[in-house]
């Protein structure tokens, strides 16, 4: 009897532990994820402007030689006709020829958009952003907007798409931990404080949290820092936003 009670007690304890663990697992779940891609060009800084004196001609024409040639074009040994550096277009007669160009048959592109099943919970609305940025720090006010909603409490988290906790190979501007991101974000509705984007994969960083049935749409300000060592060219940053919700 005593042994039976002990077994029942142990079983009850195991059941209680399993219940707690399973409840912890059920507390939060990934509801939706979206991506914001930011393509831009880094433009070179203006070059200093200066003037250089043109070099003297290598073989200046001597006026007396010109005068002699005018007076007697056939002087000297047998003549050699040469186009030298000159050249003629075909057909001759100073006719200029247009560039050769061709337009192959255009490529038709098609797609059919379907409604987003997650649109009620998470949406990203890109706004107009400049296509090019100079070296230094540039703030892009309201580069995009994010909408969140859920029937229970929730949180929105972000990190650089493709980044991992160690050994990642992502490059400018988001980079990969432990190199700090050159792209930062702020939610001016909450604070002007900027945060460098998390770039070590999941779990990322909390962008904001929400109460049950709280619908929110906020602007995200971006700050891009282009270091002087970064070559001019085209770059892209992609940020993953994930909505985690508390299950009932």
């Amino acid at each position: 009897m005593r042994r039976t009670n002990l077994l029942a007690f142990v079983a009850l304890g195991v059941l209680a532990a399993l219940t707690v663990v399973s409840q912890a697992d059920a507390l939060q779940a990934q509801k939706a994820l979206k991506f914001y891609s930011f393509a831009f060009t880094v433009t070179p800084s203006p070059s200093p402007v200066g003037f250089a004196k043109p070099a003297a001609p290598a073989n200046p024409v001597v006026p007396t030689q010109v005068a002699q040639l005018v007076a007697d074009p056939f002087v000297g040994p047998a003549q050699v006709a040469s186009a030298d550096a000159l050249s003629w277009d075909v057909a001759p007669g100073a006719t200029m020829i247009a560039q050769s160009s061709v337009q192959p048959t255009p490529v038709p592109v098609q797609f059919v958009t379907k409604s987003d099943p997650n649109a009620a919970f998470l949406q990203i609305f890109p706004q107009a952003v400049p296509p090019a940025f100079p070296y230094g720090t540039t703030v892009i006010p309201c580069a995009f907007k994010v909408f969140t909603f859920y029937t229970n409490t929730y949180k929105l988290v972000d990190w650089g798409q493709g980044t991992v906790s160690s050994g990642g190979t992502m490059t400018f501007p988001v980079e990969n931990y432990p190199t700090a991101s050159y792209l930062s974000w702020a939610v001016p509705d909450f604070s002007t404080t900027t945060h460098t984007y998390s770039n070590s994969g999941a779990p990322g960083e909390t962008t904001w949290a929400g109460n049950a049935h709280q619908s929110q749409t906020h602007c995200i300000d971006l700050t891009l820092n282009v270091p002087a060592s970064q070559p001019a060219g085209a770059y892209q940053a992609t940020i993953q936003y994930t909505l985690y919700v508390t299950l009932p």
Binding site: Q99, S100, V102, P104, V107, F111, T113, D116, F125, P126
Partner: peptide, 21 residues
Amino acid sequence: RLSGSIPISQFNVYIVYTVIG
């Protein structure tokens, strides 16, 4: 890259390539 605000529809476009020497 589809924005969340793109309408639900069928979309078509022609991409035209031009080659110049």
